[in-house]
Design a protein around this nucleic acid. Sequence first.
DNA 1: GTATAATAGTTAAACGCTTAACTACTATTT
DNA 2: AAATAGTAGTTAAGCGTTTAACTATTATAC
Lengths: 339, 339
Amino acid sequence: MPTLAEVAEKAGVSIATVSKVLSNTPYFTEETRRKVMLAVDELGYLPNLAARALSSGKTHLIGVVFPYVYEGIFTDPLVQYILEGVEAECNERGYNILLSTPRLSPDGPDENYRRLLRSSYLDGIVALDNVPLSSVLLPTLRKNTPAVAIGYGDHPNFVRSDDLQGSTALMEHVIGLGHRQIGILTVDESLHYSIQMRHLGLQQVAEGAGLNYARLPKYDRGDFSIASGMRGALALLEQQNNLTALVCINDRMALGAIQQVQNMGLKVPDDISIVGYDDILSAQLFSPQLTTIDQRAPELGHRAARMLFALLNNENPDSVVIPTQLCVRESSAPPNTSR
Amino acid sequence: MPTLAEVAEKAGVSIATVSKVLSNTPYFTEETRRKVMLAVDELGYLPNLAARALSSGKTHLIGVVFPYVYEGIFTDPLVQYILEGVEAECNERGYNILLSTPRLSPDGPDENYRRLLRSSYLDGIVALDNVPLSSVLLPTLRKNTPAVAIGYGDHPNFVRSDDLQGSTALMEHVIGLGHRQIGILTVDESLHYSIQMRHLGLQQVAEGAGLNYARLPKYDRGDFSIASGMRGALALLEQQNNLTALVCINDRMALGAIQQVQNMGLKVPDDISIVGYDDILSAQLFSPQLTTIDQRAPELGHRAARMLFALLNNENPDSVVIPTQLCVRESSAPPNTSR
DNA sequence: GTATAATAGTTAAACGCTTAACTACTATTT
DNA sequence: AAATAGTAGTTAAGCGTTTAACTATTATAC
């Protein structure tokens, strides 16, 4: 690979001149600029990014961090959409994405990740930070790396979906339809801040309607999977067979629940309403189409990236809470009073 | 951030000694090693990756390249599974992933990407290379960057799914059920090598069964989307209403086709069989469950990454063709002779 | 008892770029 | 006419590592 020195020699100028011409510094004649560019073209010169990074302290590399808290994180629609959004913003600005998926433990993220964070290799970081187990962003604060958290991690710059508003809207929809015998399918909330917020929304609305939330039939040993949705629906209906609605903490569990109750000979929504959260692709394809909450995940990625670039620009962007959208489809209806 | 020099001073040895101790070179006393490690711990030293990259020429960064040929590539299940597989292998070895999504044009990939490739910033590259429009790997050959292609791009090291075998199995299944009035829903094959191979498999089996493949009703203006599957099914059935089977080039179009024929009052598979290709998540959730081909995409990612590490290790790995698996589910059945 | 090999460390060059500090010349102001 | 400001380019230091080449000491062989 040709270096600046070779370009400089070919163009008959100094190394510094070439460097400055390439970075568009003023004070050069058209003639010099032309000579340099010609030499660059002829040699096919491209800057060595490592050298540039060492010298300038800028890598044009953005770390995008998804803690690896369960198998197959890239098949998580939230992760996909965030990536989509961040990629678009970075591409537009000529930044590259370094994808990092640290393994978490109570002691914090793994060694490799900590090394990366403090290696001066990343100009900035966007991290999905929703896991109480350990924050992936704590170390950035110490080193003053610009960073944006997506979620509820304790960080000055964040973007998050309004889980409270979303779950409130979802529960209001269910209760507004007239349901009172409601089962909840969820996961261990200690794993996820956003899940805690969703629970809070469900609880507030339930109690506003005079229901004792703590007493509602609840299955909380799910793991977001379809299979666990099936198990959960089975468990709840065996426990109390007059339930008229199941509220699920995510779409995949809701889809599992629908399959399970259909297998048991019940009709959705005639015999039982089932609602989810996320609005994944399958939610619209499934029959019946799933009533759910669209959390506008691509927007999370876009906003987080734009916020990060504002930080890199020494601006002072405001944190953002993005409202969700209730999608009423076929899987929810008023309770069947004849049952 | 502390540097080697500071560690060296604190430990009372030279910079070179610290560097060598850290990279586990032999010939040091236990005493020296201990002193160095102590200083490293006390200062919280972490190597500057840019400096290391410049000096050693190794970045421990693997480029993972997905050409951005359509909106929302990260929601493509093939991309997800490949990423999943590559990530697992890289994480195990302490390598990081640089995610690159070049925009393609007939002149080749975009400027940014070409710059990246030749910047000495990547130790190796795994690229999804299936688009005849332009190869994303051509430039790597010139620079001797170790690279593995996933797909049919013209490259000495590749991993690919056996699309010919997969489409052969799919068509044999349909014809084996007794179908002869078969419609094809597909996309413009000039866009994708793998699609060309799938067509070839369909054609060979069809002609082996005495059908004139060129004469089969065909809709080839799809774009992989559900919506285009609906349009395609409508177009074919309007053209010829005695079709007993639709073979779709991917699952999303198949799901669209099923919805469309159901809207038209037909039953799947009683009135018409519909099969897809890919085995996406929704394929198993949809009702009826979709008969399709599982191309074992995660395996593609794993194998490609392992192949790349073999190259980095100066070994000479063989290219791989991975067989697919036919998944027979509910959406296909023998033709209804009463129609 | 000397040559050879192994061990334990140091010195200094190199990687390729950016940029502060400097020189030299020309144009403008007072 | 001298001082100042603007333009056009060069010199050289510095970024933080790695590593070849070197020195010095100790152990082993014959």
